[in-house]
Simulated assay, not measured.
Amino acid sequence: MHKKILYLFITMLLIGCKEKLTKVVTYHDNGKIKEVHHINKDSVKQGEVIFYYPSGRVSYSTMYTDGKLKDTIYYYHDNDKKELEIKKFFLNDYLIYYEDYHREGITKRTGTLNIDNQKVGIWKNYDKDGNHHFTKEYKIIDGIEYTNQMWITLPTGDTLTEGVSIQYHFDKNKLQLTDSIYAFFQTEDSAFDEEDKEKTTVSVVLPKDYTQANFVPDFSNRAKDPGEKEGIPAIEIQSLKEHPNPMAVLQNPIDTTDYKKTVAFYWKPKRTGKDTIRGYFKEKLTLVDESKPIQLDKDQDSIITSYTKQIYFEFPVEVTKD
């Protein structure tokens, strides 16, 4: 009996302490409701917020907590079916999960946005029947949204690459200070057409000494051009075609002998703790104007033109003592 009275008292106390909210309504020029939300005594948004189209239909709705938007946001088409158009929710303070839809509620795209509304990571795209159509990988490079790789999905479930794409792997992400990581990179598809890709070279660019200066997450501290003096010191590892003994570098047998499009190397840590290996795979096409003789002097740039496509990567590692 005493427990029931105590529970009842606590419940009444909680109800009595519930914050009193004030309803706020704004209107479109045509007199229809534009927004409905609630504020506390400090004029801070609290609870459900609903926006309306001038037609009177719901535009989007969400929830605020202490003036902060951290809940799922639902956006709707302006029709009587109240069809969902976009859904967003916060994964953390920096990343937002995004999903939008074709008509009839069929998923169109899914992926992640950063706080600046830029696409990051893997985004999947679907056709109007809901079939997975293609996938894009996005990076933020120099502060700008950058399409890193793209794959098209066939009805069979197989994938085709679109533009340059690569396969790569590091054989471990945890190692001892005396150990090393084996890295393997290979072009899956070239950024250039059939004729030009035979003239391309591939390489991997890494910081020369990551303990002194690593590439930052958006790679903005890298040298933008080969001859540029600004940017941290870097090393460029060429394809196995340029290696005197490529089989000595390959850790495991591979199903290709095309060393021209393959880069493999060993990375040795220089300190313990958690680190990130950052770098980029580079495909380069060099064209020479054959109507002019090659001159190895300052005028050489006038007859040689280079085009590059870069795929950026980062790989977290953890290094322990022996």
Rank of each mutant, 00 (worst) to 15 (best):
T112V: 10
D275C: 00
K261A: 04
L287S: 11
V204L: 02
K41E: 09
F315Y: 15
P155W: 05
I303Y: 08
S302E: 12
D255R: 04
L240Y: 02
K172D: 00
S306L: 01
I181T: 02
D129F: 04
I86N: 11
K20D: 05
Y101A: 06
S239V: 08
S165D: 14
V24I: 11
E35F: 02
I311R: 15
L287K: 15
N117Y: 13
F185D: 04
H38G: 00
L8N: 04
T72D: 08
I304S: 11
H133L: 13
F9R: 02
E236N: 14
T276E: 09
W267S: 04
N40M: 10
K229W: 14
N173Q: 13
A213Q: 15
E314F: 07
Q238D: 13
K197L: 12
I96W: 07
D218Y: 14
N214F: 07
H102P: 14
Q238G: 11
N92L: 03
T256W: 01
G143E: 13
G16W: 05
T11W: 12
K229Q: 08
K20H: 12
T65R: 11
K199P: 07
Q295S: 09
Y307G: 01
N40Y: 12
V317K: 06
W151N: 06
T262Q: 10
K321I: 03
I96N: 07
H38I: 01
K124Q: 14
F170A: 09
F315Q: 14
Y101G: 07
N148I: 03
V317I: 15
T159E: 15
E283P: 00
Y60W: 12
K139R: 13
I235D: 04
D29Y: 09
F281P: 08
F219E: 01
R271L: 03
R278K: 11
R222H: 11
T256C: 00
T135R: 15
S239L: 08
Y126C: 07
M150K: 13
E188K: 10
S203E: 01
E99L: 10
S55I: 02
K81W: 08
K20S: 04
I106R: 09
P207T: 00
V49N: 04
K88M: 10
D301E: 10
D322K: 01
G279H: 11
I294A: 06
Y52E: 08
S302D: 14
T22Y: 13
Y27R: 09
D142H: 15
D116K: 15
T153C: 08
L240D: 06
F215W: 06
N131I: 02
H77R: 15
L175Q: 06
S165R: 10
E242L: 08
T110K: 15
T159C: 12
L91C: 09
I141M: 12
K321Q: 12
Q176P: 00
D93H: 10
T110P: 03
K20C: 02
T156N: 10
I277L: 13
